[in-house]
Structures are given as structure tokens and as C-alpha cells.
């Protein structure tokens, strides 16, 4: 394989991530009827297919590589892509969607050099608003259900994730 081809294969996770991001933006802009969840899942899958394709192409072109080297290359490309796309989905997309720090920064940016007092901040963004947004999201996703003005657990996916997060907090923070 030529040096340029080698480099292209090594950059495959980045190329696949770029494909995922561009597709996500394209779907969000041109197909608003597609749910946010489906848009991101579709984009991630297309990126995965792209990186898988690069991996297979690399394996087919490196006839001198041993089986373990070929498996190593494939695993390396896939794990790198999965790590990068995880950062995109949870570190960037999800941050813009639900991170309080980002929302607070946006409000402070609007305030400019004058800044905001705590009271002014709480008038535009506060716990009540956060609760409203999260309860609606959780209810729409079926994670909680409302019965006679009381919220109960619905589907248990978010609960499982929350318990995992609580365990990680104990491990890392305490």
C-alpha cells in the first residue's frame, strides 16, 4: 500500500466522524420531521459503515499483514471511531441540547460586559424551568409516566443509566 493510502486508512476514523457530523447536520436542516434521536442514530451508523469500509479495504490491500495485524487494524479503526463519535454525541451535541453550563454561558454572552447578577440569571434560567424541560423530555421518551399528578417510572432505560452514573460518581468522586 502506498504511503498516501496508509495515511488515508489511519485517518479513517476522523473521515468517518466528519461524514457522521455532516450527515447529521444535513438531516437536521432538511428533514425536520425526522426525530432528533433517529437523525443522530442514522448518522452514527453511516459513519460506522464508512469506517468499516475503510478497514475492510485496508485488510484486502495489505496482503503481507498477518491475521492478528489485520484484526488489530480493524479493531483500532472501529474503536477510534466509536470513541470519537461518542465525544460528538455526548460531549458536543448533548451538551448543546441539555448542558446547564452551556445555557448559562449563552445567557451571560447575551448580557455582554454588563454581566448578570444571580437574581437576573435566575429570572431567565432557573431550577423550575430545568424541571419543566426535563420532565417533559422524560415523559415524551416514556421514561416516566404521570398518574394523578404524580410521576412514576415508565421504561427503565434512563433509570439503568442513572444507577450506572451514581455508581461512577461513587467510584470517581468520593
Amino acid at each position: 500500500m502506498l504511503a498516501a493510502e496508509h495515511l488515508t486508512v489511519r485517518l479513517a476514523p476522523v473521515i468517518a466522524l466528519s461524514t457522521c457530523v455532516l450527515l447529521h447536520i444535513a438531516i437536521s436542516r432538511t428533514m425536520p420531521f425526522v426525530s432528533r434521536h433517529r437523525a443522530i442514530v442514522a448518522s452514527v451508523i453511516v459513519g460506522f459503515v464508512a469506517v468499516g469500509g475503510f478497514g475492510v479495504w485496508s485488510v484486502l490491500n495489505e496482503s503481507r499483514a498477518t491475521i492478528s495485524e489485520q484484526i488489530g487494524t480493524l479493531l483500532l479503526l472501529i474503536i477510534s471511531y466509536l470513541a470519537l463519535v461518542y465525544c460528538y454525541v455526548f460531549g458536543f451535541y448533548n451538551m448543546g441540547e441539555s448542558a446547564r453550563r452551556v445555557r448559562i454561558l449563552r445567557e451571560l454572552l447575551s448580557a455582554g460586559e454588563r454581566g448578570m447578577s444571580l437574581k437576573e440569571m435566575l429570572q431567565v434560567y432557573n431550577a423550575g424551568m430545568i424541571l419543566d424541560i426535563r420532565l417533559e423530555r422524560l415523559a415524551t421518551a416514556g421514561q416516566i409516566i404521570e398518574k394523578n399528578g404524580r410521576y412514576m417510572i415508565g421504561s427503565r432505560q434512563m433509570l439503568a443509566a442513572a444507577k450506572t452514573m451514581a455508581w461512577l460518581q461513587t467510584l470517581l468522586l468520593k
Binding site: L138, Q143, A166
Partner: peptide, 10 residues
């Protein structure tokens, strides 16, 4: 950051 959604379900 201790997600509010996760605290709610817990």
C-alpha cells in the same frame, strides 16, 4: 455535572 434528568428518575 450530575444530570437533573438522572436525579429525577433516581
Amino acid at each position: 455535572a450530575d444530570s437533573p434528568s438522572m436525579r429525577i428518575v433516581l
